[in-house]
Simulated assay, not measured.
Amino acid sequence: MTIYDEKLLKTVPMPPDLTDRHVALAQQYTRAKMLEGHTIAGFCKANRISTNTWYDFLEIPSFIKYMADIQNLVIPADEKDAFQQMKKHILKIPYKENPTIKETELFMDVFGYLAENDKRIQMERLGLTKTSSGTSNAMSVEERKTQLLGRLMKKG
């Protein structure tokens, strides 16, 4: 980052519940990700923290918001515009008659979070995980058996 960027980062208010270490790591991660292309594992190793600790930080809402604020501040507008233009092209891939494997991989790389969301919803629907509200949706064996039999009876 340039000196100007470093000064710019200091303009983002530090959330009161974050430590100086949180703030420093958020800034370093943004720098490493943008300028050096670090992975989370590489970043954690370079900063002598465990990946578990990093993921614990990513559970803190104010940490996530702070990182988003600094990333939004330092990403140039022309790069954001270019990404949006490319995203429009990538969004057309699923509607192609025969998308190539490379196109499918590109789409999943960019929109993999959609597959994760679909998987979560399906797991909740089947009662295998907690719902997004935090309540357990787990069914007893008998309830699952009844549900599955009901679905089979409808198909038959």
Rank of each mutant, 00 (worst) to 15 (best):
Leu9Tyr: 05
Lys10Ser: 13
Thr11Glu: 14
Thr11His: 11
Val12Pro: 00
Val12Ala: 11
Pro13Phe: 04
Met14Val: 14
Pro15Gln: 13
Pro15Thr: 10
Asp17Asn: 14
Thr19Trp: 05
Asp20His: 03
Asp20Gly: 05
Ala24Val: 06
Ala24Gln: 15
Ala24Asp: 11
Leu25Thr: 00
Leu25Met: 04
Tyr29Thr: 02
Thr30Asp: 02
Arg31Gln: 12
Arg31Gly: 00
Leu35Thr: 11
Leu35Arg: 09
Glu36Val: 13
Glu36Thr: 13
His38Gly: 02
His38Pro: 01
Ala41Arg: 07
Ala41Cys: 03
Gly42Val: 05
Gly42His: 07
Cys44Gly: 04
Cys44Asp: 06
Ala46Tyr: 06
Arg48Phe: 10
Ile49Ser: 07
Ser50Glu: 12
Ser50Thr: 15
Ser50Asp: 08
Thr51Asn: 11
Thr51Gln: 15
Thr53Trp: 10
Trp54Ala: 03
Tyr55Asp: 11
Phe57Glu: 01
Glu59Pro: 00
Ile60Ser: 00
Ile60Glu: 00
Ile60Leu: 02
Pro61Asp: 08
Ser62Met: 02
Phe63Ile: 00
Phe63Cys: 01
Ile64Trp: 01
Lys65Ile: 12
Lys65Phe: 05
Lys65Thr: 12
Tyr66Ala: 00
Tyr66Ile: 01
Met67Ser: 08
Ala68Gln: 14
Ala68Tyr: 05
Ile70Asp: 02
Gln71Tyr: 05
Gln71Arg: 13
Leu73Ile: 03
Leu73Lys: 11
Leu73Ser: 09
Leu73Asp: 08
Val74Thr: 09
Ile75Ser: 03
Pro76Phe: 09
Ala77Lys: 13
Asp78Gly: 04
Lys80His: 07
Lys87Ser: 15
Lys88Phe: 02
His89Ala: 12
Ile90Asn: 06
Ile90Lys: 02
Leu91Asn: 09
Leu91Cys: 10
Lys92Tyr: 06
Ile93Arg: 07
Tyr95Gly: 02
Asn98Gln: 11
Thr100Trp: 02
Thr100Ile: 10
Thr100His: 08
Lys102Arg: 13
Lys102Gln: 14
Lys102Asp: 14
Lys102Pro: 00
Lys102Val: 07
Glu103His: 07
Glu103Val: 05
Thr104His: 09
Leu106Asp: 07
Leu106Lys: 09
Phe107Tyr: 15
Met108Lys: 14
Val110Arg: 01
Leu114Thr: 11
Ala115Trp: 08
Lys119Leu: 13
Arg120Cys: 01
Arg120Gln: 12
Ile121Cys: 04
Met123Tyr: 04
Glu124Asn: 07
Arg125Asn: 13
Leu126Asn: 04
Ser132Leu: 09
Ser132Trp: 09
Gly134Asn: 06
Thr135Gln: 13
Thr135Trp: 10
Thr135Ser: 14
Ser136Met: 06
Ser136Phe: 03
Asn137His: 11
Met139Leu: 15
Ser140Arg: 08
Val141Gly: 04
Val141Ile: 13
Glu142Cys: 07
Glu142Leu: 14
Glu143Ala: 15
Glu143Asp: 15
